[in-house]
Amino acid sequence: MAQATVQAAAGVRDAAHGDAGNGGRGEPFIPPRQGFLALRSGYSPHFRTGLAIAGAVALFLVWEIGAHSVSAEKARFFPPVENVLGALYNLFAMKGFIYDVLASCARIYSAYLLAILVSLPLAILMGAFQNVRATLNPTLSALRYLPAASFIPLLLVWFGPTDAAKVLLLFLGVVWFLVAGMLSNVMAVSGELIEAALTMGASRKTVVLNVILPAAGPHLMTSGRDLTAVAWTYLVIAEVIGAQSGIGAVMMRAGRFMHVDAIIAGILMIGILGVLTDAVFRVAHRLCFPWAR
């Protein structure tokens, strides 16, 4: 038996050597199949895009099946996908939902802009200068532990149910986290890049604006992107309390009339806006930092 195997193996070798057609190369090698949970797989990007779509479809499928399996009298509390999409269409077509969406976006982006305007210089100054960091960082870190929602009564007393109160709440919700994230980005800039600039005779200002800022740039933008999700969270909280306009206000009103489909439509809308914001950040990242990999 063993002898037969040896002979067979030798036969294969002879055949490979004798095959002049492929220049003496061996048989095409077929690597072992690794299955779905391959650790380092070579699945194509197309395949992975397909998986991403399948994942999203699965979510809606579960929702759809769940909605259709509740009893008829409870169906209005758990509407299926098509009802929610219908409600979303209705909101836009009949209720001027676009103005609420724009109002929410205006609040969130003005608050966000304000937060960046405060956190970016703070992060750069603290990252570049040890003494500034020693002075401010402990206090700013402590502020991160104060829940932004706990400022709501104060903001209502000071500003009433105005847009200023809402923007400030959003601002408070993200600004300290932005500072912390951006500070670590600035401090991660290689000391040798700074030293290289110094040996070229660069001034302090040149080092900060011309070395530290561009070197940290891509990471700063990523930090900024990550916190947009947090800003949306506070937006809903801000609009749930005494707001006439905005996505949150619309959802609150729908809740009073138990229009669950409209509530979920609002949630869906926020999700869509979040994904769009993320996409805009991605494109901007590629355009602003073509050199980063």
Binding site: E192, L193, E195, W291, A292
Partner: peptide, 20 residues
């Protein structure tokens, strides 16, 4: 008393500015 342009330096780590 400090770095100056008369003394250029090449480091072991790659210090060519990646954004340029």
């Amino acid at each position: 008393t400090g770095p100056a342009r008369q003394r250029g330096m090449v480091f072991q780590s790659y210090t060519a500015f990646p954004w340029l």
